[in-house]
């Protein structure tokens, strides 16, 4: 078995790299794939929190590199899905504790046992980014429809294109707000795709459920009703190779909702 190594990166911080990682990883595992996630954000680890695994971490990636434990010992199994593992970042060390070569080596070892290795990249374009990208052959660039995030994504795409090991990269647009797009107060998905001229792999709507799911340490793909969860599930299916149409976010939820909205608008004005 030779698994696919996908790095999830963005340049800008706070656009949802780690959330994307946790959800795509969980969705792939639910689809029956063997998945390992590597948190390379040394010193600022968070992937464990989003998965609710923070209390189970014994060894970290730095322990593996410094040979205090075997690679297999450091893999933390998910609470629900035995197909899903996490290799956590060290919280007490900085980015220089792991080199590009070491990360590449870890990825190569994991490729034998897993279908997917998802590498969570730190923000920025410095050493942390270079390390995270070192072992990967595919990339998902996460951005939001905001100027600063798009600009940083463009920079990241430029850097990825210069790397021979990266065979393909795809764009994931996060925190899309259909209402703002409709009123022309936010760049649309088409605008962002056109400006970055990159292939799209996912459109994730802004969803308050993300906050509560983070609070609980439970990725939102486990919530069947959530639109963001559905969108992340679709991303996972596209990664596997299925042809899944993008969700139409602008469509109103239902006829009843539309009628309700209309009447609340009328009565609201009367007051």
């Amino acid at each position: 078995m030779s698994g696919r190594v996908i790095v999830i990166t963005s340049g800008k911080g706070g656009v949802g790299k780690t959330t994307t990682n946790a959800n795509i990883g969980t969705a792939l595992a639910k689809a029956g794939k063997k998945v390992v996630m590597i948190d390379t954000d040394l010193g600022l680890r968070n992937l464990d929190l989003l998965l609710g695994l923070e209390n189970r971490i014994v060894y970290t990636i730095v322990d593996v590199v410094e040979e205090r434990c075997k690679l297999k010992q450091a893999l933390v199994k998910d609470k629900k899905n035995p197909n899903l593992c996490l290799l956590a970042a060290a919280q007490t060390r900085d980015k220089s504790a792991v080199t590009q070569e070491q990360l590449k080596d870890i990825c190569e070892q994991l490729q034998k046992d897993f279908d997917f290795i998802l590498v969570d990249c730190p923000a920025g374009i410095e050493q942390g980014f270079q390390n995270a990208v070192a072992g990967a052959s595919e990339a998902i660039v996460v951005t939001t429809p905001e100027m600063s995030a798009v600009r940083d994504a463009d920079r990241i795409i430029g850097l990825l294109e210069a790397k021979e090991e990266i065979k393909s990269y795809k764009l994931l647009i996060n925190r899309v707000r259909p209402n703002l797009i409709k009123s022309n107060d936010m760049m649309s998905v088409d605008d962002v795709v056109e400006i970055l001229s990159a292939d799209l792999i996912g459109i994730i709507p802004e969803d308050t459920g993300i906050i509560t799911s983070t609070n609980k340490g439970e990725p939102i793909v486990n919530d069947e009703k959530s639109l963001a969860g559905k969108a992340y599930n679709n991303v996972a299916r596209r990664i596997i190779g299925e042809d899944v149409p993008f969700l139409n976010l602008e469509e109103p939820q239902g006829v009843m909702a539309k009628i309700k909205k209309f009447f609340s608008g009328l009565t609201g004005k009367e007051k």
Binding site: M147, V150, R151, D154, R155, G158, I181, N184, D185, M186, M187, S188, D191, I195
Partner: peptide, 23 residues
């Protein structure tokens, strides 16, 4: 009123210029 430039269009145009300089 759509003839007036929306904030989204402003963002797109500013981004295009700045990205061209970056690239």
């Amino acid at each position: 009123n759509e003839a007036v430039e929306s904030s989204k269009d402003t963002a797109c145009n500013r981004l295009r210029v700045v990205l061209m300089q970056d690239r």
